[in-house]
C-alpha cells in the first residue's frame, strides 16, 4: 500500500493549496482580460495581448526574477503592498501562488478568450432586445455559454500550477512547509545524496495527480459541452 510520508503529505498539501489559490485568484482577472481581448476594441490591445502571453515564452526563471524585483518585500509593488496593506508575497506560500498564477495566466486567458469568441453574438443581441443590459447579457449569456472553455482554462491553469517550478524557486525559494511544493520538493531530494527512492515516490505522486486532473477535466468538459448546446443530458 502506498502511504505518504509527512514530507510528501506536506508537499501535496502545499501544491494543492498553491494551485487552487493561484487559479481562484487569477480567474476573475483572466475572464475580464479574455473578454476584453475577445470583444472590446481599444488602443494597445495588441500590447496587452503580448504582455498576457509573455510568461508563456519567457524562461520561468526570468518571470520569477521579475516577480522578485517587483513583488518582493523591497520591490516596487511589493513594498507598497507591504507598507499599505501589510500583505507580503516574499518567501511564503502566497508568493508561490502568485508565481503559479502569473505563469499559468496565458493558458487561462487563451482558453477563455477562445470560448468567448465562440459565443454567438446574435444570441447576445437577442438577449439585449429582450431587456438585458450589458452586465445581464454577460452573466446570463456570455459567461454560461463560455463555461466549457472556462472550465478547460481552469484545468489547464491548475495543471500548469501543479508543475510550476522555475518561477517559484526563483521568487520564493524552497522553504519546507511554506514554498516546497511537489516539484520543488522533488528537486530538493534529487540534490541530496541517497534521495533516489524518495525522488521516485514524489515523481509517481506527481504523475498520479496530473492524470487525475486530466481525467476530471475530460468528464467535466463533456458534460458542459452537452448542456451548452441545449441538448438533453445523456
Amino acid at each position: 500500500m502506498f502511504t505518504l510520508s509527512p514530507l510528501e503529505t506536506e508537499a501535496l498539501r502545499l501544491s494543492l493549496l498553491v494551485s487552487v489559490t493561484a487559479v481562484a485568484g487569477s480567474l476573475p482577472f483572466g475572464i475580464a482580460i479574455a473578454w476584453l481581448l475577445a470583444r472590446a476594441r481599444f488602443p494597445g490591445k495588441t500590447l496587452l495581448d503580448g504582455i498576457v502571453h509573455l510568461p508563456l515564452v519567457l524562461p520561468p526563471v526570468a518571470v520569477g526574477y521579475l516577480l522578485l524585483v517587483t513583488m518582493g518585500r523591497h520591490g516596487l509593488i511589493g513594498g507598497w503592498l507591504h507598507d499599505v496593506f501589510g500583505i507580503t508575497f516574499a518567501f511564503n506560500w502566497k508568493g508561490a501562488a502568485l508565481a503559479s498564477a502569473v505563469i499559468s495566466f496565458p493558458l487561462l486567458v487563451r482558453a477563455v478568450r477562445l470560448s468567448i469568441e465562440q459565443v454567438d453574438r446574435g444570441v447576445e443581441a437577442a438577449a439585449a432586445t429582450l431587456g438585458a443590459g450589458p452586465w445581464a447579457v454577460f452573466f446570463t449569456v456570455t459567461l454560461p455559454l463560455a463555461l466549457p472553455g472556462i472550465a478547460a482554462g481552469i484545468i489547464l491553469a491548475f495543471a500548469r500550477s501543479l508543475s510550476e517550478f522555475g518561477a517559484t524557486i526563483t521568487f520564493v525559494a524552497s522553504i519546507p512547509g511554506e514554498t516546497r511544493t511537489l516539484p520543488v520538493a522533488l528537486f530538493a531530494v534529487t540534490q541530496s545524496a541517497g534521495g533516489d527512492a524518495e525522488a521516485l515516490r514524489l515523481c509517481i505522486l506527481s504523475v498520479a495527480l496530473a492524470l487525475l486532473t486530466l481525467l476530471i477535466a475530460d468528464r467535466l468538459a463533456n458534460r458542459l459541452e452537452r448542456r451548452m448546446k441545449g441538448q438533453p443530458h445523456a
Partner: peptide
C-alpha cells in the same frame, strides 16, 4: 440602448438561448 427600447425582435434564425429551456427562453424578457 437596445435593452431599454422595448422593441421586440424576431430573427430569421431564432437565436434562442441554448442553455435555457423553452420556458426559460419565454420568461427571459
Amino acid at each position: 440602448p437596445a435593452h431599454n427600447r422595448r422593441i421586440g425582435l424576431v430573427f430569421q434564425d431564432s437565436r434562442l438561448l441554448p442553455h435555457y429551456s423553452v420556458r426559460g427562453n419565454l420568461l427571459y424578457g
